[in-house]
């Protein structure tokens, strides 16, 4: 399954891109994250939430969208 992953804020500094398409066989978001942590070890140290179908979802949620968003909290003002 091909999934588009979008990264916001400081996450793009770890991934080096704002979005990418990943071919991914697994079904749960946490498994996708495990794979991303191997690809980007520093991502593991970052705080973020995950959204699919434009909604924040727990990491144990099954992937049901072609687009996953990784969203960190911002503090700047």
């Amino acid at each position: 399954m091909k999934i588009k992953i979008r990264y916001f804020g400081m996450l793009t500094e770890v991934t080096g891109c704002e979005e990418e398409i990943i071919d991914f066989p697994e079904v749960v978001i946490s498994e996708l994250l495990e794979m991303l942590f191997i690809k980007y070890p520093k991502l593991k140290d970052k705080k973020f939430q995950v959204a699919q179908n434009n909604e924040l979802v727990p990491f144990k949620t099954k992937i049901s969208s072609k687009e996953i968003v990784l969203l960190p909290p911002f503090s700047g003002g």
Partner: peptide
């Protein structure tokens, strides 16, 4: 509201029984 470099976030919390900031980001970094 919060900003980072070229991006920003806006939301309304605790409005008419709606979610709070912790419902989106539970733990303080």
């Amino acid at each position: 509201g919060a900003i980072y470099k070229f991006q920003g976030q806006v939301a309304v919390f605790n409005y008419n029984g709606g979610p709070s900031y912790r419902c989106a980001f539970p733990d303080k970094p």
